[in-house]
Design a protein around this nucleic acid. Sequence first.
DNA 1: TGCCAGGCCCTCTTTAGGGCCTT
Length: 203
Amino acid sequence: MDSVAVIDFETTGMSPEQGARATEIAVVLLRGGEVVDRFQSLMNTGAWVPPFIEELTGISNEMLDDAPPAERVMREVAEFVGGVPMVAHNASFDRRFWEAELARAGRAGGNPFACTLLLARRVYPEAPNHKLGTLARHLALPVTGRAHRAMADAEMAAGLWLGIRRALAQRYRLPDPDHSTLCALQSVPRAGLAAWIGRHCGG
DNA sequence: TGCCAGGCCCTCTTTAGGGCCTT
């Protein structure tokens, strides 16, 4: 199994294009189905954290006053991740912040992202919904810490990623699919999932 | 005061609208 970097951002809002900035980042490095390394840091961008976000994440403006500057954190995490393909829950969100914060730090991104939300909608259609916390309970994943903190959410997403791979192996005889295969699979129409796997993966 | 994103996905669809996800 190739290495993947499972990432989660906490931020001040929904969109970097609208001025939102990252407040915390966590990355869990998976290799061979195991967590082999972790990176986590608060990051100070100078942006103000709205009260609603403080309550949601537990990350306060005071905490960020003492956090290292975002540019330094992003350079460090870019070194940590390197060229490893990435995974996130609702990856379109984390990818936008990954690219935006790296660009501010003078670093290039471009890592491919797989999305556990899109995959879970296909692999776990029976789940009550496809929020990260709900899926973690659905799969009986271990509680990894306070929800809406970056490392706890990255650990949950990593567990979900491994659960999706196990489910694909069990249901579709698709053992150890690589990152690029799952990136393709996450865009396959739900109803055609089994047929697509049969055509493209010999399952 | 009120508003603010982007992408996927379903359906009472496709010349569109709205719910789901992420903070």
